[in-house]
Design a protein around this nucleic acid. Structure first.
Length: 578
RNA sequence: GCGCUCGUGGCUCAGCUGGAUAGAGCGUUGGCCUCCGGAGCCAAAGGUCACAGGUUCGAAUCCUGUCGAGCGCACCA
């Protein structure tokens, strides 16, 4: 609808020989007195052509076809707005489209022939997902769906950090708990993972392997640098324990390590599936190191002259690309930094041929964005191919109390708990509803106790009501037929409002996709549901007058279709009965 | 100290990328079921868009400064 109008404006400008390079922006009006669409083109042109905006508006309007079955009339208002009034016929054609296109209604070809890889959540596999990760999960899938609707080829990926030091800390944590189950007396390191899930993994290990990995506690802790609780350094302490574990367990260390990793990864995978989040690929960081990809990437940087040695470490010259300081990629002890494998990972992504990369990261990573982009530039790629979307933290409250979130200390509310308590639909909607760069206050009490106030139910209720009406019709042994000519009977204000609202859907999809803002869709769906509830309240659908009844049923069916299409993108179900 | 993000009714948030009289939900107050699902509808009260300048036909939106909040500023991941 909007596209058609834009086309008409373009033609009008061509006839006037105005070849200014501007995009014609049409806006929905807030007030029906201003018609259906308004265009400020004349005001923008006035600046460039140094002419009176109203005069320009006049000449444009003369070239616009009106009084046909699409445009009813055109007016010039205020300083030079061009207001367009559409015909009812135009809106009826739109109902036609919805009922014919069904799930295809609202789709567009913005991303035709373009592929996007979208990486999100990618939480370290050192513990279960908590509510903080839920936001990235919900936002990521909604965005992926939205981009798909806009015609992009989308590839969703989870990057598994299974190669860093934190994984060794995890393995050691499990092993120490296992030793406790073997009746060894252990002073658990303050820097170990302390959650209950560590006990669970240890118990499994003990069940499957009995005392096979047991070592005397005194042997394990012999000559280990003291923990912070004993006046030492907690980092040195845990590093000493890692060394000791590898040394004592030899090849068995891998078994413990793998048991820990697999259990947690399975758990994460399961939680995400239950939350309605699925990936095309789970990419292992270890696959990069094993294939020597990190070293190769570093070599490439080195060859290109973007590195230097200092204090025994290898540095990436980030400053020559505008970064505030240079960054270490190989530590003094010869180990790669996280940054190094991340460069290799992004190189790998681009080598796989994606046109565009989207990373959804927690806002605490914002300082990290420039250096990744600089590394891409250094490797000869266009850094613009990467978009990093930062999702602000969710601050978790239980009533007035602010909760801490720490995987290390084991104090957190898991995503699973959230889903079980507030439900998947409500949780998904709650997360997506907020603009991603907004700080989100997540009050568990509120989410739990007032679930009925969550707009998701309001929208689903509209869907269920429609389903109910359709059921009633069938139960009465009746059928209905769609006939476009019947739509002329739709005359009430509520019916008109719904017609307009439905026609906006493709525009909302387009805007939301371009801006990476699925929250726009949630607000639209709420508005649509509200319009439907108002309509439903004052216009009875199942009435004896067949012509009007069928017209209202057509409208209702169209609303149902759009609700379904929109909720699917957000990842919320469409229950026929609630 | 420097950087990033943000500041909109009592609370939680939108505001179509500079447009016409700033909008919702919750909460508050008052109405609406002999009628397709009341998880609903209708209405009212409530905002100098943090503050001060600037840019222009026009600013919640762009620029500068001030104040306030969150997060970053590792040879951690």
């Amino acid at each position: 609808m909007k596209q058609h109008l834009q086309q008409l404006f373009t033609e009008a400008l061509e006839q006037l020989d105005i070849n200014q390079d501007i995009d014609i922006r049409l806006e929905r009006t807030r007030d029906t007195k201003h018609g259906d669409f308004a265009c400020n083109l004349a005001m923008i042109l006035a600046k460039k052509l140094h002419k009176n905006p109203r005069d320009i508006a006049n000449s444009i309007v003369e070239k616009l076809p009106d009084n046909n079955d699409f445009i009813a009339k055109v007016e010039i208002a205020g300083p030079g707005f061009i207001n367009i009034f559409l015909t009812k016929q135009a809106y009826h054609t739109n109902i036609d489209d919805i009922l014919k296109l069904k799930t295809e209604y609202g789709k567009n070809q913005l991303g035709k022939d373009q592929s996007i890889m979208i990486e999100f959540v990618s939480a370290n596999p050192t513990g279960p997902l908590h509510v903080g990760h839920g936001r990235g999960a919900a936002y990521g899938t909604a965005l992926a769906n939205l981009l798909q609707t806009a015609g992009f080829k989308v590839h969703k990926e989870y990057y598994v950090n299974d190669a860093g030091r934190q994984m060794d800390i995890l393995a050691v944590s499990v092993w120490l708990r296992y030793l406790e189950l073997c009746d060894e007396t252990i002073e658990f390191p303050s820097n170990g993972y302390q959650g209950d899930y560590i006990w669970d993994i240890a118990a499994n290990l003990h069940r499957n392997h009995a005392d096979k990995f047991q070592q005397k506690s005194t042997t394990v802790f012999a000559e280990i640098s003291p923990d912070i609780t004993n006046g030492g350094d907690k980092e040195l302490h845990i590093d000493g324990l890692i060394q000791r574990a590898k040394q004592l367990l030899e090849d068995d260390y891998k078994i413990v390590f793998k048991q820990a990793l697999d259990t947690i990864l399975d758990n994460i995978n399961h939680d995400l599936k239950q939350f309605g989040v699925e990936y095309e690929e789970w990419f292992l960081e270890s696959s990069l190191t094993e294939a020597d990809k990190v070293q190769q990437t570093i070599d490439q940087l080195q060859t290109a002259g973007h590195t230097y040695k200092k204090d025994g470490a290898l540095w990436f010259k980030a400053t020559s690309f505008g970064d505030e300081k240079d960054r270490v990629i190989v530590r003094e002890n010869g180990q790669f930094t996280y940054f190094a494998s991340d460069i290799a990972y992004h190189k790998n992504k681009l080598e796989r041929g994606f046109d565009h990369l989207i990373n959804i990261w927690g806002a605490d990573h914002h300082g990290y964005v420039p250096r990744v982009k600089h590394a891409m530039t250094a490797l000869g790629y266009n850094a613009k191919q990467l978009t990093v979307l930062l999702v602000q933290f969710a601050t978790l409250y239980r009533g007035q109390e602010r909760l801490q979130m720490s995987t290390r200390s084991g104090e957190f509310v898991t995503l699973r708990e959230l889903r079980e308590e507030v439900g998947r639909d409500a949780a998904r909607f709650f997360y997506v509803q907020r603009k991603s760069e907004q700080h989100l206050n997540f009050d568990l009490e509120l989410a739990k106790s007032q679930t009925n106030d969550n707009p998701v139910y309001y929208i689903q209720y509209a869907y269920a009501r429609i389903s109910s009406v359709m059921r009633q019709l069938t139960e009465q042994g009746q059928t209905w037929q769609y006939d476009k000519t019947n739509l002329t009977s739709l005359e009430t204000a509520h019916e008109q409002a719904l017609l307009v609202m439905l026609s906006r859907y493709p525009e909302v999809i387009e805007m939301a996709a371009l801006a990476y803002e699925p929250h726009q869709l949630t607000y639209y769906l709420r508005d649509l549901a509200q319009n439907f509830h108002s309509f439903y309240d004052t216009n009875k659908i199942l009435i004896p007058d067949n012509k009007l009844r069928d017209a209202r049923l057509s409208l209702t069916a169209a609303v149902r279709q759009v609700l379904q299409n929109g909720l699917m993108i957000i990842g919320v179900s469409t229950p026929e009965v609630m």
